[in-house]
């Protein structure tokens, strides 16, 4: 099993696509950092200060990872995670190589688990890379100061700032770590669904498209508040539940619910992938 994880990791990681992804995951935080920097300059001259995390980020480099994650977790990381997960098995099938992988005495269950583990690892690595790039850049630009957060609900209203709160540097670091882990774990549903779709088809782009498509549809439906409580079961509903750690000085209860929802998807679709792949006729 360890051997299988290792060989599958090399197959998945050693490709040009990985370089492009790494470039994006470092380049985009740099761009966002630049935007925060400019916005901070304008804010000093009394201009528009933007929304939530974004307008606070210039106070401390330790807050930049949170701002960057809030921007990147909703789309770019979804696309990357969907690509990695959707490609896991269908990629080999599309190359016609899956049958050669499987004529070794290798159990199909172990192959799916190994591919899932590798995809999960790469998704976590991508999320952590975003955080690290943002953290390094942020601290270089803005230093590692504590942050004073005003009462955001009153912000921009009458202009009378009510009492806010202060996050120490160590509290910020801890919360950034938790946020990163939460965001990365938030792709568990996508990982499991992507792996499942990947067992259904021999077309890698089909599996990738389906995975990302489900996320986009979930996001769209989630924004229709009339759907009410049904939305709580959507895989994307709790994706941003970590943000109040920085804007509200709380560890939101929703984060726990979010983790549970992801776990349910992980187990259900992971099991579906295992069962389906075990029975599947391999033609590619």
């Amino acid at each position: 099993m360890i051997a299988l994880v290792r060989t599958e990791f090399v197959k998945a990681a050693r490709r040009t696509r990985s370089l492009v992804i790494v470039a994006l995951l470092i380049g985009l935080p740099a761009l966002i950092l630049f935007a925060i920097h400019r916005r901070a300059g304008r804010a000093d001259r009394g201009g528009d200060r933007g929304e939530g995390l974004f307008r606070l980020a210039h106070q401390s480099g330790l807050l930049v990872p949170a701002a960057v994650l809030s921007v990147m977790s909703g789309f770019l990381l979804v696309v990357i995670a969907g690509t990695i997960a959707g490609d896991s098995i269908a990629g080999d099938a599309a190359w016609g190589n899956l049958r050669y992988v499987l004529i070794r005495p290798v159990s199909r269950v172990k192959l799916v688990l190994a591919k899932g583990l590798v995809a999960g690892f790469l998704i976590w690595a991508a999320t952590v890379l975003v955080m690290v790039a943002a953290l390094v850049g942020g601290v270089l630009f803005f230093g590692a100061h504590p942050v004073t957060v005003p009462n955001l609900s009153a912000f921009g209203g009458t202009g009378a700032l009510s009492f806010g709160f202060t996050l120490s540097s160590s509290a910020l670091v801890l919360r950034v770590l938790i946020a990163t882990a939460y965001v990365a774990f938030g792709y568990s549903a996508l990982l499991a669904m992507g792996t499942f779709f990947s067992t259904l088809t021999d077309t890698a782009t089909g599996a990738i498209g389906a995975t990302i498509g489900v996320y986009i549809i979930s996001e769209i439906l989630n924004s229709i508040t009339e759907l009410g409580q049904v939305r709580y079961a959507f895989p994307t509903h709790y994706l941003d539940a970590w943000e109040p750690m920085f804007t509200g000085n709380t560890y939101p209860h929703d984060m726990i619910v979010g983790v549970v929802v992801q776990l349910v998807y992980l187990v259900v679709f992971g099991a579906a992938a295992l069962v389906w792949f075990q029975r599947k006729d391999i033609r590619s």
Binding site: V10, D92, W95, R99, V101, P105
Partner: peptide
Amino acid sequence: QAAFVPHLSGLLNLKLWWEADG
């Protein structure tokens, strides 16, 4: 037909295929 992981060398393809089962 024979098929391989296209972005890896022929030799690495053989090695990874061989090592997959330990």
